[in-house]
């Protein structure tokens, strides 16, 4: 028999982390990374044990924690590593996120403890729709979301148009490669510009460039530019 257990305890990785910090009576700004990381990983292990699908977000956080822990083990390199500086301190970033999340968690608790309409207090359920005096439609309750919902429903009902457009390939890269090979066989050196007609189409330009690049890749030709901004010459290699 398969049991499926769902634990609603944690809203996400930040929630779990916050719980661990609170449990160990730490301050958000000075977390004992090593301890928290171990406990965090243990919690994930426990989830695996309970056969819970671990959301990717939990793993991302685990990676962040391990990254922070490993940074702490390494000696600090004084500002030489600019890239690292630009990326920012993952610890600082995490503290910011934890603080932010903690605030909203508290705000949510405060909101939840309000006397809620429909849960703790109620109103007179008058509806002024049956008056029938004016037939004006009431648009006030319809917003963008409702419109989108209707649109999606209709969309689902639509039969999918099955048509497939086939475009005739007027010039293929393979064809162009053959042409260039012929040209280069006749002439030892060729200017790239010579490959194009006077007013080439966009398509011609793209196909020709792809053909040239392919020929360079297979080492059939090489491209040489002798002067800066000068003409690019094609030389045969084989």
């Amino acid at each position: 028999m398969v049991f499926q257990v769902r634990l609603d305890n944690f809203e996400g990785p930040l929630d779990l982390l916050l719980h661990l910090i609170k449990k160990n009576k730490m301050d958000i700004c000075s977390i004992a990374i090593s301890k928290v990381t171990d406990e965090y990983l243990a919690a994930i292990d426990k989830m695996k044990h309970l056969n819970l699908e671990i959301a990717g977000e939990f793993l991302v956080m685990a990676a962040t924690l391990i990254h922070m822990k490993s940074r702490m083990l390494l000696p600090e390199i004084p500002a030489a590593d600019e890239e690292e500086d630009e990326a920012g301190d993952p610890g600082e970033d995490l503290v910011m996120r934890l603080k932010e999340y903690e605030f909203f968690k508290q705000a949510a608790e405060t909101l939840g403890s309000c006397s809620l309409l429909g849960r703790d207090l109620f109103v007179n359920p008058v509806k002024h729709t049956e008056n029938g005096e004016d037939d004006e439609l009431d648009f006030s309750e319809v917003g963008l979301f409702e419109l989108m919902k209707v649109c999606r429903e209709l969309w689902g009902k639509c039969e999918e148009e099955s048509c497939h457009q086939v475009e005739v390939e007027t010039l293929s890269v393979a064809q162009r490669i053959e042409e260039i090979c012929l040209l280069i066989a006749l002439q030892e050196v060729l200017e790239v510009r010579q490959l194009f007609p006077d007013r080439p189409s966009q398509y011609q330009i793209i196909v020709t460039f792809l053909a040239v690049l392919e020929l360079v890749r297979v080492r059939h030709i090489s491209l040489v530019q002798k002067v800066q901004f000068g003409p690019i010459e094609i030389t045969r290699l084989m």
Binding site: D8, E11, F104, K105, A107, A108, E109, L111, G112, L116, L117, G118, R119
Partner: peptide, 14 residues
Amino acid sequence: PLRLSTAALEILAI
């Protein structure tokens, strides 16, 4: 009666 989950309350707060 109206029920709002923790997730719903958090999202609403944000």
